[in-house]
């Protein structure tokens, strides 16, 4: 993806965020007494600034669109990155359902596999070691209750 296109898109995303937050500030109650700014004023200032800068980004993106010398954004090993994000997402979803230890026992090897580590012994050792670390340090020594 070209930088100009990325800037155009991120400008639009920021503008949308600004608009969404702006509509929400409209519902906020007025200040409690006249010397207070109220809940909405501070967000207004930020949203306003954000919207202006988002427009600058969009403008820049449109203007530079044809520039051939601009940097290009690449994601190396795209599939691996996406799979790891997905893996962690599923892992976090599993944690409250089946508990920390079991979900880690399942997810960690899978994420390691996604990341490109293919040696089963290494995967097993790492997962086991990490679980032991979590159990000993967090659960036993520090008394953090894991789900």
């Amino acid at each position: 993806m070209k930088m100009a296109l990325a800037e155009l898109i991120s400008g639009i995303v920021f503008l949308i965020i600004a608009i969404v937050f702006f509509t929400m500030t409209l519902k906020l109650p007025p200040p409690m007494n006249q010397s207070d700014l109220g809940p909405a004023t501070f967000p207004y200032i930020i949203i306003f600034l954000m919207a202006i800068l988002a427009c600058v980004l969009i403008y820049r993106g449109v203007k530079e669109r044809e520039n051939t010398k601009q940097p290009v954004i690449k994601i190396k090993r795209q599939n691996s990155v996406l799979l790891v994000i997905l893996g962690v997402f599923i892992y976090i979803n599993l944690m409250p359902i089946i508990g920390y230890y079991i979900s880690t026992l399942i997810s960690l090897p899978v994420i390691l596999w996604f990341a490109g580590e293919k040696k089963p012994i290494k995967i097993a050792l790492l997962s086991g070691g990490f679980l032991l670390f979590a159990k000993v340090v967090f659960d036993m020594l520090l008394g953090v209750p894991l789900p």
Binding site: V84, V88, I92, E117, F138
Partner: peptide, 13 residues
């Protein structure tokens, strides 16, 4: 790649 996954697990924990 191993460091990455271990760091990911640590950030979650």
């Amino acid at each position: 790649r191993i460091l990455a996954v271990v760091v990911a697990a640590i950030t979650v924990l």
